[in-house]
Structure formats: structure tokens, C-alpha cells
């Protein structure tokens, strides 16, 4: 089957899509956007988080067909060529990246959280990111990164 959708602002299409392929598979293997990660492919780790029509979803749980005509934004679409998004900068500055496999999903999830809640409390951050597993950092620096990003946003950065 053929799939058409908008990804990171561009109209994209994929040919020869098999039923059973997930949106994650399409992004990674057919649209050359491997930024979204595949740590579990069953909705448990959040490493594949993307926006679909503005909603945060686990792309591994979205069937390719369900993405038809939708608007997808992935981690690759959050910043332009030269400038990092403040959330991305904060993850680097706070030391929230080790192996980085959880990072793209966390960046998108944090982006989503701060859109909804510009100044989240610790508990709110923890709750919002509870679906994103990280095996390396122990999460403390991720918490720091989110707070740093919120502060940056507050300063109009």
C-alpha cells in the first residue's frame, strides 16, 4: 500500500508499505528519519515518541495506515539546521544525555510537557515523563534538564 502524510512540515509518501508496519518503522526505514528510537516497540519506553496531529504518541503503537493524511513531527523536526531547540540545549547542558537512546523520545515528551505547562513542578515533570524509560542517567539530570528548559523558555530564550 501507499502512505501519504506530512512529516516535519513536508509532504512525504512511502510506497510498498506492508500492513503491520508501524509508523515508527515507516519513519525509520522508509522515510530516512531514524531519530525516533525503537527500544521496545510495544508502547512501554517512550523512545519512539512523536507528535501526530499535535498529540504525543508512541509511534511504535501507531499502524502505518493510521498515519495516512496526518501531520507528524519527530525529533528531527523540532529544530532547524543551525539552532537547537531550548529543550535540546538543556538536555546537553544538564548532562541528561549518556548513551542517548532515550533522548529523542524524552526531548519530544518534554517539548510536549512545556507546551502544555510552561512551569511544571517536580511532581508534574515526573508524572509527564513516567512513560519514558532511561537506563543510564537515573533521571535526575533529566529532571534538571526539563527545569532548565522551562527556565529558558521563561526568559524568552
Amino acid at each position: 500500500m501507499k502512505l501519504e502524510c506530512k512529516v516535519n512540515g513536508e509532504n512525504r509518501e512511502a510506497d510498498g508499505v506492508r500492513e503491520g508496519e508501524s509508523l515508527l518503522y515507516i519513519l525509520r526505514e522508509r522515510l530516512d528519519l531514524p531519530g525516533s528510537k525503537n527500544a521496545c516497540e510495544q508502547g512501554e519506553c517512550g523512545s519512539c515518541s512523536v507528535y501526530m496531529d499535535g498529540m504525543l504518541v508512541c509511534s511504535c503503537l501507531v499502524l502505518a495506515g493510521q498515519a495516512e493524511g496526518r501531520e507528524i513531527v519527530t525529533v528531527e523536526g523540532l529544530a532547524d539546521e543551525n539552532e537547537l531547540h531550548p529543550v535540546q540545549k538543556s538536555f546537553i547542558e544538564a548532562g541528561a544525555v549518556q548513551c542517548g537512546f532515550c533522548t529523542p523520545g524524552l526531548i519530544v515528551a518534554t517539548h510536549d510537557l512545556l507546551e502544555r505547562n510552561a512551569k511544571p513542578s517536580d511532581v508534574e515533570i515526573r508524572e509527564a515523563l513516567a512513560g519514558n524509560l532511561c537506563r543510564c542517567t537515573g533521571y535526575e539530570k533529566i529532571l534538571d534538564a526539563v527545569k532548565l528548559a522551562a527556565a529558558k523558555n521563561g526568559n524568552g530564550a
Binding site: 525516533s36 525529533v75 529544530a79 537547537l84 546537553i92 542517548g100 533522548t103 526531548i107
Partner: peptide, 9 residues
């Protein structure tokens, strides 16, 4: 490697 990691690259 932080920059490519946060960009998904």
C-alpha cells in the same frame, strides 16, 4: 556527541 544525540542524528 550531545548535539547529534539530541537532534536524533
Amino acid at each position: 556527541d550531545g548535539v547529534p544525540k539530541v537532534r536524533g542524528e
